[in-house]
Amino acid sequence: MLSELLALVSARAGVDGAAWLDGACAGLSAGQGALAELFPAASRRVGRGPLGAASPREYWRVDDGARVALLLAASGREPTVTLAAARDLYFSGDAREKVGVLRALPWLDSDVAGDPAALATVLDAVRVNQGEIFEAALLDDGYGARHLPPHEFRKAVLKAVFLGLPLARIAGLAARADAELSASLLDYVHEREAAGRSVPVDLWAVAALHPPPGLVAKLVGLLEHPDSRHRAAAAHALRLAGDARARPFVADRAAREPDAAVAAALRT
C-alpha cells in the first residue's frame, strides 16, 4: 500500500512534493522526523487536487494520499502507538488533516473489534457537520462503515440520508442493515411526507432488506409514481423485499411500463 500511494502522489505532486514525501516517509520509517510537524504541512507540499486512485478511493485527493503514506510509514514500527498518534493528529487537525487521518484508519487498524483510539476518532467524525469529514468516516472504504458499533452505524446511515449522500457509497451497508435501521428509515419517510417533501430514492433498497410493516404497500404505490427514478427504485426494492403480495401489482405495472429500464427491473 505504501509504495502504491507514493507512486500515485509522485505522479501528481511535482518533483519537489514527491521528494518531500519520499524523504519524510523514509525518515518516519527509520524512527526519525516529527509526524506532528510533517502531517499539517502535507497539503501545501503535495497539493490538494484529485489523487487519481482507483475505486473505492476515487475521491481521495493528493494530500490524502500523502497523509496516509506518512502514517503508514510511521506505523511500520509501532502500529498501536501510531493509532494513538493518529487520534491526536485528528483532534488537533484542520479539516484536511482530519480527512487524512480517517482515510488511514482502515490501513492502520488490523483489530477486527476496532482499536479504541480509532473508534474514538471515527465517532467524532460522524458527529460533525462538515461534509468532507463525515464522508471520509463513512463512505467508500471508510473505517466507520465497518467498525462503528451497530447503534452508531445506524445513526450514521440516517445522517447520510439526511445529508443527501448516496447510500451506495457506504461499503457493506447491505450486510450491516437490520430491522431497526429499516424502521428508522421508514420513520424518516413519514416525517418527510408529513412535511410535503421528497424522499431520496436510494433509501428504499436499504429499507427493503428488512421490510417493516407498511413498507411493501408504500413501494407498490410508488410503482405508479410519475417519475421513472421512483418507479425504478420501487421495482428494485420490491425485488429485495421478496413479498409475494406485491406480485400482481408488479405484473400489472410491467405490462404498462413505458420506461425500458423500469420494465426490465419489474420483470426480474
Binding site: G164, S198, P200
Partner: peptide
C-alpha cells in the same frame, strides 16, 4: 464543501 470534485456533486443539507 459543495464544490464539484471530480465531477461529483453532492447537494448537502435537506433536499427539498
Amino acid at each position: 464543501d459543495r464544490e464539484l470534485f471530480e465531477g461529483n456533486s453532492v447537494l448537502r443539507g435537506q433536499t427539498r
